[in-house]
Design a protein around this nucleic acid. Structure first.
Length: 295
DNA sequence: GCACTAATAT
DNA sequence: CATATTAGTG
């Protein structure tokens, strides 16, 4: 044990670009601040012992197998209410009841299944509708920006985002919308973004990035002269995927919150309360781009 | 056949 | 409206 044997060509270099352990939130530490946790009725994560952390690391590593640090997309359970519309309008149906907080009692529900899925397959299972949280979108935009609009194609984006459970289709779909947004914005020159822009409005359009010719037989191009000044800089061998340090973002369990897949939409529609809390969290994690020195 | 995009469906 | 799914294309 010990050494990180170089998995693949680029991985070693890539890892080098990652934040040092000190920069990262310890695994043993809850990602969710206590106050917020209570706001969300999340019972302050189960105590994590060294053993737990270890185990978590293991599964992380196993799922690593050639990937960088990634955070998982869904944590476990999503109920499938396949109703037409999902107003809080419930008839006399005591049977359905609500799905009790998945975050609540069963920590295992959120953490353990992953092994089977991520390690080997995690494939043809019907995934819950992906909710592009600001975090995810941010990651998305960052990656697209670093790739340059031209190289920003679903597969690459997906790979660089390195979000577990995120599919190419997910990215493709989002990318489509994102391109439309960019087009709109460019067409309108400049001016207050439409209120209907929601997510996009808060994210700057990727400036036409470097990189234009992708004539490298190497799937992923590398245009990185960006030295990361994280105190952990010092090695950018050429020929590797863009070494973007990835922020630790809370797992996007949020999906569970909107059991029928409306994520923040849901919150912003009905529960202003949530939206508020959510925004708070956002802010905390909002600046990763600040940390990684721009080129 | 795979991956990308645009179009369409939920 | 936000995502998913399909269809057409290189």
């Amino acid at each position: 044990m010990g050494e990180e044997a170089k998995n693949d060509d680029g991985v070693a270099d890539w890892e080098a670009g990652l934040p040092s352990p000190d920069d990262l939130t310890p695994l043993s530490q809850s990602l969710i601040p206590a106050n917020l946790a209570s706001a969300f009725k999340i019972p302050a994560e189960p105590y994590k012992t060294a053993a737990d952390v270890n185990r978590a690391s293991q599964s992380t590593i196993s799922s690593l197998r050639g990937a960088g640090s990634n955070f998982k997309l869904f944590g476990g359970h999503v109920d499938d209410q396949s109703m037409t519309e999902a107003e809080p309008e419930e008839g006399p149906d005591p049977n359905k009841s609500r799905r009790i907080d998945l975050t609540a009692e069963d920590p295992a529900t959120t953490d353990n299944y992953m092994d089977d899925q991520s390690t080997s397959a995690a494939k043809n299972l019907k995934r819950p509708r992906l909710v592009w949280t600001p975090q995810l979108h941010k990651r998305f935009v960052e990656v697209v920006a670093h790739l340059g609009l031209k190289n920003a194609v679903p597969k690459t984006i997906m790979q660089l985002m390195n979000v577990e459970g995120l599919t190419r289709e997910n990215v493709a779909s989002h990318l489509q919308k994102y391109r439309l947004y960019v087009k709109r914005m460019q067409g309108l020159s400049n001016e207050g973004p439409s209120p209907s822009d929601h997510l996009f409005a808060s994210t700057p359009v990727p400036p036409q990035s470097f990189n234009e010719s992708s004539s490298h037989g190497n799937g992923i191009v590398n245009g990185s002269h960006c030295s990361v000044g994280n105190g952990n800089s010092a090695n950018n061998h050429a020929g590797v995927p863009i070494p973007m340090p990835y922020p630790q973002i809370m797992p996007v369990h949020m999906m569970g919150m909107a059991t029928n897949g409306h994520g923040y939409e849901y919150a912003h529609s009905h529960n202003h309360h949530y939206q508020q809390q959510y925004n708070n969290i956002m802010q905390q994690q909002r600046d990763w781009s600040q940390n990684q020195s721009k080129c």
